[in-house]
Every structure is written in C-alpha cells, then in structure tokens.
Design a protein around this nucleic acid. Structure first.
Lengths: 137, 137
DNA sequence: TTAACTGCAAACATTTTGCAACCGT
DNA sequence: ACGGTTGCAAAATGTTTGCAGTTAA
C-alpha cells in the first residue's frame, strides 16, 4: 500500500474512486508533475475525473502535508510526495530534470544563519540550478 | 540618479513618463513588492498608469536583469532591484517581512554539492522561513 | 518622423466556487 | 441516511494581447 494512501487513511479521509486514482498517479510520479500533468495522467486511468477535483484533491493533500508544492524557476507549481527524509533539489536547466540531494552541513548552516539573525528556522527552500559538467563548453 | 535608471540608459531603453514612475517606485521600495503593489504605488504618483504597462515594464526589466523575481511561499511573485552583492532571504512567516543576508560558507557548499552531483552551479535559490526567537512560545 | 510605447478592453490561462447529483462510511 | 465529494459551468484571479492613439529620440 502506498505511503500516500496510508496517510489518507490515518487522516480518515473519505477515499472516493477519484481520490484513489489521484493517489495512484502521485505515488507513481517521480518527476514532480504539475496539476495539469496529474490531471492528464489521472484522466488516462479514469476518463471522467474533473480538473476541479484534481485541484481540490491536491490542495487537500497539500494542506495535510501529504504532498509538497514546489515552484522551480519554470513558472509552474509542481508536486511531490512528502519524503521520509528531507531533501533539496538540483534542477538541470537544460531539461528541467530534478535531482534530489541531502546535505547536513548546509542544513546546519541554515539553522545557524537564522539564529544569528534572531530567528528560529521553521522551514526553508534550497534549489540549485546547474548544467552537467561534461556538457560544459 | 538611481541605479535602475542608470541601467535603463545603458540599455538604451526609451524612458517614457510611465517608466520613470515605475523606476522611481522600484528604487524606493525596500519591501519586495508584487505587481499589484507596484501598480498601486505608481498610481499614486501618476493616476493614469495602466496595469498592463506595469506588467510590461516589469517583464522588460526582469528580462534585462534590472530587477529580480521572487516567489516566496506566500504565493505571489515579488520583485526587487538586482543587488550589487548577491544575497539570500529570510522571511518572517508571521508578517512576510523579508531580511536579506549573505553567507559565503553556504555559497561555497552549494557549489561543492552541485559539483559532487556532476553539475556546474549556474544559479540558486535559498530562502529561510523563521519566527523571531523572542516571540517563541 | 517613426518605431516603440501606452491605455483600454477583450482575451487568455489558471484556479476556485456554487450547485444539484452522487457516494463512502 | 447523510455529510462529504463530484462534475459541470460560471466566476474569480492574474496576466497578456490587439489596436488605435501617443510620445521619446
């Protein structure tokens, strides 16, 4: 059973056919799809899903911390399952491919910087944008 | 003369009255305003500026790297003059206030992380979200 | 002079909402 | 049974565009 579905059950969400389909799509999408793409993939499974339902469901999942919203510099809002382990993103600017990474040193530095400014760090966003070294001119 | 205006001249942009007003607003805004707010402030100076002109001018400035677009987690796109020295942002989640900071250690770490993943870092985005320590319950 | 710019309104794109029908619990 | 959910279409947002008139260089 998918991790998303598990969280839905824990929250006692009513699991309609449409929601099950959207859960399936999100669980199987490793590419941080946007709403339009989730809608497209869901429609392939169930012709009758409405875009409003996709918007409502994604919002619901986001509010319940089941999925995370990202806005990389391509303008669209994209989503991914909330991971067990926190990670940040490196985006390949040639093709939009997203690579996930973790770095404790950076995490700790961020916490320290916030403290120095008089703040307690409650959230952060770190995105790196790069081009593959081998392609470098 | 404002730094924005200087860049406009260097680029040979035609400086209409409307653009001058928008330049003035952007130069005097230290709070990362969104389009709507720039429009509001510009309207206070010149009643007749259209919102379309504000959109067009902001896009023009952004394309010419005169201003930078940010999307903090409040959903709106906000703008600031391109700074001489690079900095990142800490956002006070109680009130949306933005604090700018610099940290070379983090910058270098980012470069190194990208390299380890096989990428040359060409851009990045780092935002910290926090609450003031003294307000902490 | 004239190519670029402007205001306006219409067009567009994206997201939300009202509502009657429907369905999971 | 019934309160939450759905699809649809309409509305609301946010942004862009076509056009005729205007303006900086």
């Amino acid at each position: 059973m998918s991790s998303i579905l598990k969280k839905c059950n824990e929250l006692g969400l009513k699991m309609t056919d449409q929601r099950k389909v959207i859960v399936e799509v999100l669980s199987n999408s490793k590419d941080h799809p946007d709403v339009e793409l989730v809608y497209k993939r869901a429609s392939e499974i169930d012709k009758n899903i409405g875009i409003a339902t996709v918007y409502r469901t994604i919002r619901l999942f986001e509010e319940n911390k089941i999925i995370e919203k990202h806005e990389f510099k391509d303008g669209r809002f994209r989503y991914e399952e909330v991971p067990d382990e926190h990670h940040d993103h490196l985006i390949d600017i040639r093709n939009g491919k997203v690579i996930e990474f973790q770095n404790d040193e950076i995490e700790n530095l961020q916490k320290r910087v916030a403290q120095q400014l008089g703040y307690e760090l409650v959230d952060h966003r770190l995105e790196l944008y790069g081009i593959p070294i081998k392609d470098k001119k």
